[in-house]
Structure formats: C-alpha cells, structure tokens
C-alpha cells in the first residue's frame, strides 16, 4: 500500500518537475524573445499556469484527498470550487502583503510582485487546496510537528517549506553590485522559489522513503 502510494507520488512529482522545465523551455520555440530573465513576467505567467494546470489534473486523476472520497452533490461541488478560487485569491493577496512587509517595493513593480505572489500561491496554497480541500483548519493542522496524517501531507509540508525557503534565499543576492540581469526584483526570488519547489518535489518521496520507519500516521 505504502509503496504504491509512494510510487504514485514520485511519478506525480516528476510530472510536475517536467512541467516546470517545459514551461521554461517550450515557449522559446514559439516566441522569439522569450527568456526567463528577459521576459520575466511572461515566464511567471506561463510557469504558474502550467504548474497549476498540471497540479489540478494530477489531483483529478489521483484523488489524493482521502476525505473527499465520499460522493458530494453537484451544488456542494460548485460551492467548493468557488470557495477554492476565493481562498486562492486571498492567499495571493496575503502573500503580496507579506512580500511588501518584507521589503518589496509597494508601487514600482506592482505587477511583478503580484505575479510572484501568485507563483508562491501555486506552489503552496494550490497544492493545499488540491490535497486538503478548501478547509483552512485542516491546512493549519497539517503544518505542525505531528500534523501530517498521510505521506501526501508530509510531502506538502516539505514542498511548502522548501519553496518558501527558496524564495527567502533568493532575496539575499539582490543588494550585491554584480549588475546581473537576474538580480532585478523579483527574478532571483522567483527563481529561488521555483528551484526550491523543484528540488523539494524530488526530495520529498526520497525523504519519506528513507524515514519510512519513523513516520507513523496515527489518525489514518
């Protein structure tokens, strides 16, 4: 049971990684001037759109959320989708606020900052939405020491922490006077977040595999 689940997770994660790679490489075939640093905003849009699309499709295929297994009426489904969209938007706004509090410019590159917030939301909130449903209580529960109830929860913890940490690390080289194109706000941060996310996608199944014995999910 565990191993199958783990294998499923691993393949799902690999697909996600591939989708990120895809979103960076493929558009340059169609667009002449596409590059990650040059047309950063476009890349941000493409990347977050691809990742969110792939995440949702994977979720629909895999049905990772154990609690949603019972049949729901269509109307409740609609409200659920509506709630999810609302929550996603709120999380974007909150991330934007946090970025500003952390020193992002307020007005100058508003679009870039907001897109960065959207990217972060796709890496974190969207996955929460897919795995736990629009249930904020459950989200809060997952993010504590003994909060994980399945390996999916654990992977959620790892990916979220890694993407946020990557974004944090990305802010560090900004003040250096190297004058590289990627030092412009928010490129280094978005790259950091994406890298962190990608790495965590690979690492999470491996980590779970190695810590199999210590991971016991009490409330399964």
């Amino acid at each position: 049971m565990r191993d199958i689940e783990l294998r499923g997770m691993f393949s799902a994660h690999i697909i996600l990684v591939l989708s990120i790679v895809f979103s960076t490489l493929v558009p340059s075939l169609f667009l002449d001037e596409f590059s990650v640093t040059g047309t950063h905003l476009l890349w941000l849009c493409v990347c977050s759109a691809t990742v969110s699309a792939v995440t949702i499709v994977l979720y629909l295929l895999l049905e990772t959320n154990p609690t949603s297994s019972k049949k729901n009426s269509p109307s409740s489904k609609v409200t659920k989708i509506f709630r999810s969209c609302l929550l996603f938007f709120i999380s974007c706004v909150i991330f934007h606020g946090i970025l500003v509090l952390y020193g992002a410019p307020l007005l100058v590159s508003f679009r870039e900052t907001f897109m960065f917030a959207v990217l972060l939301s796709t890496f974190t909130t969207l996955r929460c939405l897919c795995m736990l449903g629009p249930n904020v209580q459950a989200w809060i529960r997952v993010f504590s020491k003994n909060g994980a109830m399945s390996i999916w929860d654990t992977s959620l913890q790892i990916t979220t922490i890694c993407s946020l940490f990557g974004a944090w690390l990305g802010a560090i080289p900004i003040p250096l006077d190297w004058d590289r194109p990627w030092q412009v706000w928010p490129i280094s941060c978005t790259l950091g977040a994406t890298l962190g996310f990608t790495i965590s996608l690979v690492i999470a199944p491996l980590w779970i595999y190695w810590h199999k014995k210590h991971l016991t999910y009490k409330c399964r």
Partner: peptide, 27 residues
Amino acid sequence: SFLLKSLVTFTVLKLKWNGKLNSYCLN
C-alpha cells in the same frame, strides 16, 4: 531589517510548528 523580520517570523512559526498555539494536544 530583513534578517530581523525573518528571525521573528521564524520564531513564531516554530511555535506554531510545535503545536504550542493549540490549547490541547492534537493527537
């Protein structure tokens, strides 16, 4: 100020991670 903000945020998040904000044990 960036490091300061990070440090304080981290402290509070760690408190949350350790479940000290809940009034009773989760399990």
